[in-house]
Nucleic acid binder design. Structure first.
Lengths: 352, 352
DNA sequence: TTGTAAGCGTTATCAG
DNA sequence: CTGATAACGCTTACAA
């Protein structure tokens, strides 16, 4: 039984509790050896909760994500955990795209954790009170709450992602390019669409309003959006699908309709996966380093918690890359030149 | 600031701390309304840590998995979280296939959490001390530690899975059937191989020892194992790959060697995924309900924690299913009959 | 119903 | 370096 307390140890050795406490904290004490033995003998383990009460720290960081079964968030969490090292452990909360649950979870975190890594569902949730946000060290990752620019954030370069995708499709000669976008109420939904539209505008392509489908980042949503696109009289010849799950759904729709990719529909997705090149056809995507994003979020949060000279909120951007495979169509002969050009447009890691 | 304590509230209202405490715990108190107001006014939130110290509970369940980026574990964790409801939250630990870290993590959980859902890396880890295991309510999921049969467990019906896979391949006419197995030191590695071999034996197929490749449940391992198989003079014509990650690696090897599936190599994997039927060719797999497995583990653990009449250790088995797609070869005309037969061999959910 | 008081197991302070 | 002693903020007998 782990019932032994510090006072049991103290009594057994014949010193005070304080001395044992100091020994545990790594200070030099006279009876170190005897204390160490008594601890072993009694199988004493410090009561963490009591320690937490005294010190006011918990050693816990909450990571609040929409859904851990989305591989991107899984990698994000893993990256965060690795960056946390030995000192902090992770409390995981899935909000399941439920605003109420999100608010509930955030509230509960107060006093239970030392900080929060937070992927908010929408950029403006009235439900999330300022008070809650103000009660905790917090960093946004992947998405932000726009009402609070007082926090650190670690975002992907979403605009650049949308821009790269559209540019690629345009260069391949497409004029009718659709986008299956995420919710415009969310950061990546909005920003990826912005980058996409920017490329179209710059290249002088006028966008058919039918070709903009706002969806919800789910597989089903992607399926429906693609079905909608396919029911159009004037179908697009290419599509950028703004996240991984929607891409899965969209590909299913294409498969069902026996549309051949990329001949009849060129496809670029968002977020890479080990399986992407086993798909038929291998999927061209905009990729980013999810582990890195999680790790940067954790590192920033820990700096903030440790109060390292109170820096102003950091807005960190993680680079995105175009990974060319077959789903976007012929990898034309000047491909290498193109890729070099793309590379130039990327900053390895932009800290603002 | 969340600095207000219960005594601030008590003072403001002019009652004792105990009264406020009772109010919070839902008891009827005379000044309920005034207390409620004071709590709002002061923005008082109970200090959870102090409460935990007093009550001896933390409201935290540790979930220790090898790697959350494996979709199976992600679903498992999600299922567990859902089953936890509002009362318990999840502390996530990835062991990253590192026995030392696993032991470290488990030790750290003592006193920090109310219970552990645990996917051990090996069936016999000397590193994990009995003492640690005995200090916590614990349920094994997906894998077990054989030295401790004193715990509840929730496993998939792995034997049946291996058996179904092999049977299918045999029925399709294959005689040279390989298996890329997980580590024999792990529960699913061992059991799936057992079921596989059992089917071969029953159907009178003598196994070429070259066709048994023990690997490590990683994608790279699967890649190497498949490469080994392909380098054989007498290649097998079919292969059962005993987990999801190894299947990805194996498919990559097949692709690189331009082996056409299923014509030159029939493939059955383990664990389904939404993407499995987008792969080229769509992947036949043994599937199971990962959410359910996680949820059952959590439910069992909570029962145990709540001490619901001290039932003996439960060994729960979750059914597996054969999901037939194209990678295992021609879905012959008597397919429906076959599937019905398979169904019969499955118990919906076996509680032992 | 309410208040008093005694802890829960640590760590922090302060004098020695 | 050590030992009293006082918190940390809450819950829970116990008595009123």
């Amino acid at each position: 039984m782990s019932k032994a307390t510090i006072s049991d140890v103290a009594r057994k050795v014949g010193v005070s509790e304080s001395t044992v406490s100091r020994f545990i904290s790594g200070y030099k004490v006279r009876n170190a050896k005897r204390i160490s033995r008594a601890i072993k003998d009694l199988d004493y383990r410090p009561n963490i909760v009591a320690r937490n009460l005294k010190t006011g720290r918990t050693g816990l960081i909450a990571v609040v994500v929409p859904d851990i079964t989305n591989p991107f968030f899984a990698s994000l969490v893993r990256g965060a955990e690795i960056a946390a090292g030995d000192e902090y452990m992770i409390q995981l909360i899935n909000t399941g795209d439920d605003l109420e649950r999100e608010n509930w979870a955030l509230k509960r975190m107060i006093g239970r954790v030392d900080g929060v890594i937070y992927v908010p569902l929408q950029e403006s949730s009235e439900a999330i009170s300022e008070k809650v946000l103000g009660s905790l060290p917090l960093v946004f990752v992947d998405r932000v709450l726009t009402k609070s620019n007082a926090f650190d954030s670690v975002l992907a370069d979403n605009c650049q992602g949308g821009f790269l995708a559209a540019s690629r499709l345009i260069e391949l000669g497409h004029k009718s390019i659709a986008i299956i976008s995420g919710p415009q109420s969310s950061t990546p939904g909005r920003e990826r669409a912005i980058g996409f539209n920017k490329a179209l505008k710059e290249k002088g392509i006028v966008q058919n309003s039918q070709y903009f489908r706002e969806s919800d980042f789910t597989s089903l949503g992607g399926y429906q959006a693609m079905s909608g696109l396919l029911s159009l009289k004037a179908r697009p010849t290419a599509v950028f699908i703004a996240n991984n799950l929607m891409t899965i759904g969209a590909l299913k729709a294409l498969k069902e309709h026996r549309i051949s990719v990329p001949e009849d529909m060129a496809v670029i997705g968002f977020d890479d996966h080990e399986i992407s090149d086993l798909i038929d056809p291998p999927l061209t995507v905009i990729s980013r380093d999810a582990h890195l994003q999680g790790a940067l979020a954790m590192a920033t949060l820990l700096e903030r918690i440790r109060g390292i000279n109170q820096f102003p909120p950091k807005q960190i951007k993680v680079e995105v890359n175009l990974v060319v495979r077959k789903s976007c169509g012929s990898t034309c002969h000047h491909r290498n030149g193109e890729e070099a050009k793309f590379k130039d447009t990327l900053s390895a890691l932009t800290l603002t």
